[in-house]
Design a protein around this nucleic acid. Structure first.
Lengths: 232, 232
DNA sequence: AATCAATGTAACAGTTTTGTAAAATGACGC
DNA sequence: GCGTCATTTTACAAAACTGTTACATTGATT
């Protein structure tokens, strides 16, 4: 039970998920508020100065989408960052497209590590918006909040998938990821995606990165997969 | 399907928990096997060389307790560390007291961080820590997660077979392996492979290593086989 | 030194894996 | 609906890897 930390509101109907999330956030020093329905969540929002909201997409009564709308409609709460938790297969693209006003979303099953990173990013964006979340390796750097990538000081424009792909690689530079692992992380295992698709996207990513620099940042490990590695 | 990492078997009936655990372990580089019932779990244990087991206390049919007993009764599996996952209120004290043979237990809701720490600890306690990801001998080192090999600070590029071969040698530096032993370990005895093939691959490995350093790391023991040894 | 068996290795052919362009698909905004 | 864009699949080319063979070299033994 932390005393101060930022206040996080979790709205999630499945108790075990709620517990787990709450516990993990608590361990990190956050001040956790729990709600099992949208109504409860909105009530808590009225009473407490919440700093960030984790909102399950699927909720028993009002859908997460609806709850999000309500939060964003209310002047007092509209500036609170909302991270939507969506289950695999609930078509993340639609989520992105929809005008929910959500600030971020994350697809289940997510790694707690990633979730925590997003929460931090969300909090940063709120107060001052100055803080940056930057991943980098050698001369390559990725600004998560700006969604921008730089190689040797050249800006590189990446499509959404390429961006995600690079992000995964960048989260553990040097580590070799099998095609299956990449499918799982980048494509959230949306079944029916060929493993070879990974190759094509790796190829594109490579081309984009190399266009700006010369050295090859992506290493192919024959028979295993790929890694971000200036192996030389 | 992860490639390297230690193999973790999770036995947990609640799908969302199973997914979450599995995903988080996978992200950390473990090779995850999933089972929703004790039976399934035991089956997997028969087929696969599991390194550590996460076992839910509450299971639909056979209770986790019973499954644990069975694991510990079986000579082949008794040495595999078992971490029990118990829900709060299921009287942890009793768990501790009971002679389940479990090596560790953790109470829900747990922080993933803590769980991962316990898993690492469990693996360490096993056989001297099979969870090592760097093998080395003298100035030669092999990073398993990176799939990279270094000799005197030079990177060496090895093909999949050469890599495996070196790995076997590196797991017991100095020990002499006969060609048959190497065939067994590296080629998994895929029938119809000539003995002489080993020589060829040893030769290739040698060439690659020597290209980067000068000293010969591989010793030929005439009439017996090869070993990793900077003898002369 | 001559012999013989064991080992080293280059070269080849066959296979597998990866790179990539281009066509098919699908989503979205107009 | 239609064009545009991003993604996925497909198909083929290129590259890397493998196992075998043949021949060269080595080392032990006589």
């Amino acid at each position: 039970m932390s005393i101060d930390g930022p206040k996080v509101l979790i709205v999630e109907d499945e108790p075990s998920q709620l517990e787990l999330l709450s516990y993990n956030l608590d361990v990190e020093g956050y001040n956790v508020f729990k709600a099992e329905t949208g109504e409860q969540g909105l009530l808590i929002l009225e009473e407490t100065e919440i700093d960030i909201i984790l909102l399950d997409w699927m909720l028993p009564q009002a859908s997460g989408l609806e709850v999000c709308r309500q939060i964003k409609r209310n002047k007092a709460t509209k500036s609170i960052p909302v991270i939507m938790l969506t289950a695999r297969g609930e078509e993340e693209d639609k989520v992105r497209g929809l005008d929910t006003g959500a600030d971020d979303y994350i697809v289940k099953p997510y790694s707690i590590k990633e979730l925590l990173a997003r929460v931090r990013a969300g909090l940063r964006s709120r107060d001052g918006g100055k803080g940056v979340d930057v991943l980098s390796y050698e001369n390559l750097s990725m600004d998560l909040t700006r969604h921008g990538v730089t190689v040797e000081d050249h800006n590189v424009h990446l499509g959404p998938l390429e961006f995600k792909l690079l992000r995964v690689l960048l989260e553990a530079p040097g580590r070799v990821f099998s095609r299956d692992q990449l499918l799982e992380r980048v494509w959230a295992n949306s079944l029916e995606v060929e493993t070879r698709t990974v190759d094509v996207h790796i190829g594109r990513l490579r081309k984009q990165l190399n266009a700006a620099c010369n050295d090859d940042y992506i290493r192919t490990v024959r028979g295993f997969g790929y890694s971000l590695d200036k192996f030389a």
